[in-house]
Write a protein that binds this DNA or RNA. Structure first.
Lengths: 345, 345
DNA sequence: CGATAGAGTCGAACCGGTTCGACACGTCGA
DNA sequence: TCGACGTGTCGAACCGGTTCGACTCTATCG
């Protein structure tokens, strides 16, 4: 394998000069620079990543800690990955992917061994056991998901409170008086998925403020259970005119459920989900939804992380907790309630 | 950061001795070994990955080249990733993930810079432009997907020919005489997805051998197009009693289509798909299917790759092309055809 | 004209591991 | 008692980059 010494010899200069010519970290005469570049090109020189990392204590690699949970919806996870990898590549970083179920152990290994310059954590739980390890590490970290304690890390998440409010208020404005909210299953909450509560509590508050009845329930994460849940719910609350979904599986199952019941949206029922546009396309879901923007969140986390790695943050820049504003993507599944009934009397 | 020199000093031995004590590459007295281990433990020593890679020319990292294509079904892709990452971790390797759209460029970069000890390629096309780069690289490579030219690499794929035969013969045995095969969209084929042809050709041959009529068609990759396609197909071939699906989107859309048409499986129509069990669970698909085993394929590729990396292959071991046998997972969606009609006359 | 600044180059040291050859010591057999 | 051998340890070199300080040469200014 050709190394920088070979390049230097071919160009007739010292190793250090070749290095400066290629990295541009010191002034080099035009003539020497072109000679070195030429030699490097002809010999097919590529710097050895290990050696460079050793010398500079920078690897240009970002660690990505994901967990492929069986009840996570795969398409959403892949979108996070894509947001992270694409942005990292654009900024000149590679991605070291760990899906180790021993999150803390994997994190400690890749940070202590200096394989990575920084770390992005996905699926962050409220009391995530990776956080103590991350805080003890020498490298900066960025999270996708809001933990209880945000000290020492940059945090990015959807504004689930605002999402809950927006869902309720949107239907309230249309005149709805009784709504149902289907959340993620309870075990997601128990695992630390606080976002479920954040959305739900905000929705409950907003409903109370408007004098609206809101039924809340945890749905299953898989079919056919979630389908049964939805039928039972609609049976139990015949007066409800709006359905809010903070549960991907429920959204995916809903078309079949509504068809079976011969219920039309938005004529008979208004529906608002919370999922990404990509998700909506994959399952061809016709419901308006709060965009959860997984690719954008992944991208934001990487950008901030790289800023920290490269010390582009102002001296003593405080850590960031940034919420993405929930945009309501209108797919025409909401309307004023019960137009039919209103005509009856 | 604590390095091996610190450990050696704390244990009162030379750096080299500390290294031997920790790696076990030379005999060390029990007493010294325990002293070094103790010191390493107390100081919290972790070897520097870059330095080790530089010295040993081994990084213990495997490159994973995936392409997140918009028409790839996300859940399947995630399963490949999971198979690869899990197996790699078990064997002591980390994963460098690249989803760069410039596959050849990314591959050249990570191999030339010695960041990885070997490479796994996903989504391998028939004439994959990453293959020349891989063959020129110093590291071994394993593919998931069958290219035209397999020299210099280990290849793993589902036996799509056998899958096509098995689908047809299964329904033939049950007495079906007219079948429909829905393949992936044509642009998947054009991109080099030869597996579409492999399955289809084998199915056509098997049907001809049995004297069965087989209608073949490329389906769309997204809803609602694929739903329309399915309706049109069933309208066009009212005599068909069996439906074969080599198209994930078609499988996901089928329940809705059949419900609309008031068609029951297997009473009115027998159905066999080609997708993973995980996929079937995610979409709660009730159809028997050929298991495509993405996690297993990913795992096999990594295992073979690691064997090559660690030179555990017998001297001059030839490169491998291994097909996974397609298992038919019975979900009860096939039966003898037209029982109803048979009683009519 | 001499001091000085700046540009460009070089040699050497360093990053943190691994590994080779040499050496010291104790044991065994002749 | 001497030499051969095996075991355990050490020092030094090496992997392939980067970076610091020193040096040379030229241009500039007082």
């Amino acid at each position: 394998m050709v190394n920088i010494g070979d390049v230097a010899r071919a160009a007739g200069v010292a190793r250090s000069t070749a290095s400066y010519a290629l990295t541009g970290k010191r002034a080099v005469s035009d003539e020497v620079r072109t000679r070195v570049r030429q030699a490097a090109m002809e010999l097919g020189y590529t710097p050895n990543a290990g050696a460079r990392a050793l010398a500079t204590s920078r690897s240009n690699v970002i660690g990505l800690l994901a967990q492929f949970l069986p009840d996570e919806f795969a398409p959403a996870m892949l979108q996070y990955l894509q947001g992270v990898t694409d942005t990292a590549r654009d900024l000149g970083y590679d991605i070291l992917l760990s899906s180790d179920s021993d999150g803390p152990g994997a994190l400690k290994r890749i940070t202590d061994s200096r394989m990575v310059d920084g770390v992005v954590l996905l699926n962050v739980a409220e009391d995530d056991d990776r956080l103590p390890v991350l805080r003890a590490a020498a490298q900066p970290g960025a999270l996708v998901g809001l933990p209880r304690d945000c000290t020492g890390v940059d945090v990015f998440d959807l504004d689930f409170e605002e999402a809950g409010r927006a869902m309720v208020e949107h239907l309230a404005r249309l005149g709805h008086r009784e709504l149902i909210l289907v959340s993620q299953p309870e075990h997601v909450v128990e695992r630390g998925g606080a976002y479920v509560w954040r959305l739900q509590n905000a929705a409950v508050q907003a409903a109370a403020a408007k004098g609206i009845t809101l039924h809340t329930v945890f749905g299953a994460a898989t079919q056919p259970d979630i389908g049964r849940d939805l039928h039972a719910l609609l049976d139990a609350h015949p007066g409800a005119t709006g359905l809010l979904l903070n549960n991907e599986a429920a959204a995916a199952a809903l078309p079949t459920v509504l068809r079976t019941r011969d219920v039309e949206t938005p004529a008979d029922l208004s529906v608002i989900g919370r999922y990404s546009d990509e998700f909506a396309r994959t399952f061809s879901l016709p419901y308006s939804s709060i965009e959860s923007a997984p690719d954008r969140l992944g991208s934001m986390a990487v950008r901030q992380l790289v800023r920290r790695i490269e010390n582009q943050v102002p001296e003593g820049d405080p850590y960031v907790v940034r919420f993405v504003h929930p945009e309501l993507v209108d797919r025409g599944s909401t309307a004023p309630p019960h137009l039919g009934e209103a005509c009856e009397p």
